[in-house]
């Protein structure tokens, strides 16, 4: 069993009227099964409202499945006695950088998680230092988060999660509110975590450029897993992605257009270099 495993997970949002009677049920996640191995870099892709964030919130027991089971490192998330172990092992970074920073000074915010876990003071300091260094924010440790850019704030949030020494980190659209530079910063930090620290990463996003580095991609639509595979496999299905309200990187799209008009190019080209190489071979 992997670090995170879900089996036939269903999640219903139940809407109630003022009297508390059930008004309607929306199924946000439908029969999702996945098995994520330790050290993986997983991307979950989907348009707004596809159920990807709802699914992600199951991974650290913020939401519980209506049907089916979620295991984090072998522990069933509905087991209350394991709740805090689960939240420590599967850390979560959210979309809005302002709404997840609790401390008024960067280092105090990073220390918040370890404090909650009851870590001794000296070790908290060590953890804060190493986490801030891991995301390249150590020199900002005494700053107020309000003065940081969006990308920097998200890196602080990531450090706050790393300081809890999780086995797995789930990032729920961490770049949706950032500008291109901020997005690059955050993705670089996340990749380094996965490469260097071997932390399992689950990245939820709708930006295609961010998932090229993943070793597995799940595409969600209407609460279900609509596609799964390597980025190359996913991106070779341009038409299907368009149907799912998604797009492919511009390079891939151009290669696809060229291929459609008769130029014989391989499927799923992801970078400018790959395209130029492929064209060079044509002459």
């Amino acid at each position: 069993m992997g670090i995170i495993k879900t089996k036939n997970v269903v999640f219903d949002y139940i809407r109630r009227n003022e009297e508390g009677d059930v008004e309607g049920i929306t199924t946000a996640v439908k029969d999702v099964s996945m098995d994520i191995q330790e050290g993986d870099f997983i991307a979950i892709l989907g348009h707004n409202g596809s159920g990807k964030s709802t699914l992600a919130k199951h991974f650290n027991a913020i939401l519980y499945p209506t049907e089916g089971t979620v295991w984090v490192n072998g522990k069933d998330t509905t087991d209350d006695s394991k709740l805090w172990d689960i939240r420590q092992e599967a850390g979560m970074v959210f979309q809005n950088p302002d709404n997840q920073i609790i401390g008024q000074v960067v280092e105090e915010d990073v220390g918040f998680g370890p404090e909650n876990m009851g870590i001794p003071t000296r070790e908290i300091w060590e953890r804060v230092e190493e986490s801030l260094k891991a995301v390249g924010m150590y020199e900002y440790r005494k700053h107020s988060p309000n003065k940081l850019s969006g990308g920097q704030k998200q890196r602080v949030s990531i450090a706050g999660v790393i300081a809890m020494h999780p086995k797995c980190i789930i990032l729920d659209e961490p770049t949706a509110m950032l500008d291109p530079n901020g997005r690059k910063e955050v993705i670089r930090a996340v990749r380094a975590l996965n490469d260097v620290e071997r932390v399992t990463v689950i990245l939820i996003t709708h930006y295609m450029e961010e998932i090229i580095y993943a070793n597995k991609v799940f595409v969600m639509d209407a609460g279900e897993i609509a596609m799964e595979g390597t980025p190359r496999e996913i991106f070779s299905q341009v038409e299907k992605l368009k149907q799912l309200r998604l797009e492919v990187p511009k390079v891939t799209l151009l290669a696809y257009e060229l291929k459609k008009s008769g130029l014989d190019l391989p499927d799923g080209i992801l970078t400018t270099k790959e395209l130029a190489d492929a064209l060079e071979q044509k002459g």
Partner: peptide, 10 residues
């Protein structure tokens, strides 16, 4: 287009 998904952006 800030914060919208690709289709929403288009």
């Amino acid at each position: 287009t800030a914060g919208l998904d690709p289709k929403g952006r288009d």
